[in-house]
Design a protein around this nucleic acid. Structure first.
Length: 560
RNA sequence: UGGGAGGUCGUCCAACGGUAGGACACAUGGCUCUGGACCAUGGUAUCGGGGUUCGAAUCCCUGCCUCCCAGCCA
């Protein structure tokens, strides 16, 4: 297969691959893998890795495997396996027939362990966990060799086989690589490569009672699968010498190159699986798929599109510096995507009743409305106007501040697709609250009348409006970096979720299909909730708001 | 006082010895039957100090700062 070297904007990993292609290091082959541990839900940080690994394979005409790093049965569950596969697929990637599990290689891994023993590169150690830690030394002082370090190969083999046979309880002994207790790199101070764990595995059942450590299983798994470039995050940089050490001492089919890049951080959220789990367990969110969560399941539920997420991952770049990307970029990507393809509809979130005093009672007039000005193929629909309608409360001010161009007593505003109206009066209740606005409409302002006013607002005919629930989401946290707070939970945004009921929407939304997305004109992009929306009972999640010039002006004025 | 990695606009990423550029964000203006979208314009950056060079973000020396590592987690 011909694999042209792409001249698209590069990053340091592609630079490396380009050089390997030039030197024909892997015979023109590019093979990556995405290796999640099935111990939690995927989040936006994983999306970066998924897009990188699958993206590179696509770009170079190579392959990318999905491999579950399931070497620790105490933390892993099939539930996570299923959700991970579902999410990767949803994101738009295909591992074809290359679904693998590190546990597929348990036997091979074990055989290689015997090989390591036979070649004098590993030994069974009977030190306790505490003793191993003590013997390991510290960051600044070298460690000491285990007293079991120089056992004979036969003795080691015998112990390893008995470990496998289940003769010893958990923690009784471990298999360790024999490297260098004085190394400045602590990962090289005779790291543990096998531990005893009498625990059933979600795939291998109770076939095993000893399980390989990640550092040992990973390089071998990569080699078995013929991976050429093994991409991982920065914290594994220190592990690379061991990765290479293992592959250099075993008769593996190839020696992949590990390359480390910076993991993704996004402001106003957290990425740690542990903290995310805490939010779920403490019921601070509704679950892993709470639309405010940075999990891909949450984003999906919220209505974010895979296209936008992939675009975001393309734009954030790949480098070795720890960095935090502004969530505004994600929001931008999402708006850009939906602007092209989301049908426009009118939905009044905070309804204010308007009566057109000079509009005939009982009359219904239909107007053509363009579904999407950005997409000529999106067509039009018909919307009804009657004497009574709803507009947004924010679109009316009894005492308009400067730069407020919307409706106010004596002022005009256009109803989108219909007439210009003028406020003549305000009706208030006993408490002095505005409950209704009286207007007249200008019958001559229909269509291309030439008359223009400063603002055009969305509205819905009262007689035709349908009630909907709308959920407005904001950043889950008020702090840019919640993780560095003493207690990240204290910075949860109390306004991160606002549930609105009795919103008035166009009747075409009454049975919006779950997952369908719309632009609610002048407000934002919304998605019919996957779980709670039902025919006749519409529920919408705000994916992202539209940019709001007036909000900025208003904010500036209150600050000033 | 161990080992590893890294410091470029507010943020993220480029520039690979030859005019520091893009995106987002921000600001100003234009346009608009979405205060959306779109268009135009603008400001702000090479961690510090030496050196090499006609020329340094890039090479060398030195200092400073940040991140990661002492799981039988990944």
């Amino acid at each position: 297969m011909s694999t042209a070297i792409p001249d698209a904007p590069s990053h340091f990993i592609k630079d490396i691959i380009n050089e390997d292609m030039k030197s024909n290091k892997h015979k023109g082959r590019v093979h990556t893998r995405f290796p999640p541990e099935p111990n939690g839900y995927l989040h936006i940080g994983h999306a970066k890795s998924i897009c990188l690994n699958f993206g590179i394979a696509l770009e170079y005409g190579g392959k990318c495997n999905l491999r579950f790093d399931d070497t620790n049965p105490s933390k892993e569950e099939v539930e996570y396996v299923d959700s991970i596969m579902d999410t990767v697929r949803w994101l738009g990637f295909d591992w074809e027939d290359r679904l693998f599990y590190a546990s597929d290689y348990f036997e091979q891994l074990y055989q290689y362990a015997e090989h390591l023993i036979k070649t004098g590169n590993a030994f069974v150690c009977h030190l306790s966990a505490d003793e191993i830690r003590e013997y390991r030394g510290t960051l600044t002082t070298p460690g000491r060799g285990s007293p079991y370090r120089n056992r004979s190969a036969d003795e080691n083999l015998d112990f390893l086989r008995r470990m496998r046979a289940g003769e010893f309880p958990d923690g009784h002994c471990v298999l360790r690589a024999k490297i260098d207790m004085a190394s400045g790199n602590i990962n090289m101070r005779d790291p543990v490569i096998y531990r005893i764990l009498h625990m059933p595995h979600h795939r291998t059942g109770d076939a095993w009672c000893l399980y390989p450590m990640y550092d040992y299983a990973h390089p071998i798994s990569d080699a078995i699968e013929g991976i050429t470039h093994s991409l991982c995050t920065l914290e594994f940089e220190d592990h690379r010498p061991f990765y290479d050490w293992v592959l250099d001492r075993l008769p593996v089919p190839c020696h992949p190159r590990q390359i480390e890049f910076a993991r993704l951080n996004v402001n106003y959220t957290i990425m740690s699986k542990r903290k995310l789990l805490q939010l779920v367990q403490d019921h601070l969110v509704s679950g892993w798929d709470d639309p405010r969560m940075p999990t891909l399941a949450g984003m999906r539920r919220r209505g974010l599109t895979p296209e936008a997420i992939r675009d975001f991952c393309d734009r954030i770049g790949v480098a070795k510096v720890n960095s935090t990307v502004d969530v505004a970029l994600l929001e931008h990507c999402q708006r850009e995507d939906l602007n092209k393809r989301a049908p426009r509809v009118m939905a009044v979130l905070h309804p204010l009743r308007v009566v057109l005093e000079n509009y005939p009672e009982g009359q219904v007039e239909w107007f053509d409305a363009i579904n999407n000005p950005e997409d000529p193929d999106a067509g039009t629909r018909r919307i009804p106007l009657t004497r009574e309608l709803y507009i947004e409360q924010d679109d009316f001010r009894e005492e308009p501040p400067p730069k407020f161009y919307r409706l106010a007593p004596g002022r005009e505003m256009r109803l989108k697709h219909a007439y210009i109206i003028k406020c003549t009066n305000v009706v208030k209740n006993d408490r002095g609250e505005i409950v209704e606005v009286r207007c007249t409409y200008d019958p001559g302002s229909r269509g291309e009348s030439g008359r223009s006013v400063k603002v055009t607002a969305h509205w819905v005919s009262a007689a035709h409006a349908f009630d909907a629930e709308v959920r407005l989401y904001n950043h889950l946290f008020t702090k840019e970096n919640p993780a560095e707070e003493d207690d990240f939970r204290a910075s949860i945004n109390p306004d991160s979720l606002q549930v609105l009921t009795g919103c008035k929407v166009e009747s075409c939304l009454a049975s919006a299909a779950p997952g369908s997305r719309y632009q609610f004109m002048r407000q934002g992009y919304f998605c019919a909730d996957l779980m709670d929306a039902a025919p006749g009972k519409p529920v919408f999640n705000r994916i992202v708001s539209l940019r709001d010039e007036w909000a900025k002006i208003a904010k500036k004025m209150t600050i000033a």
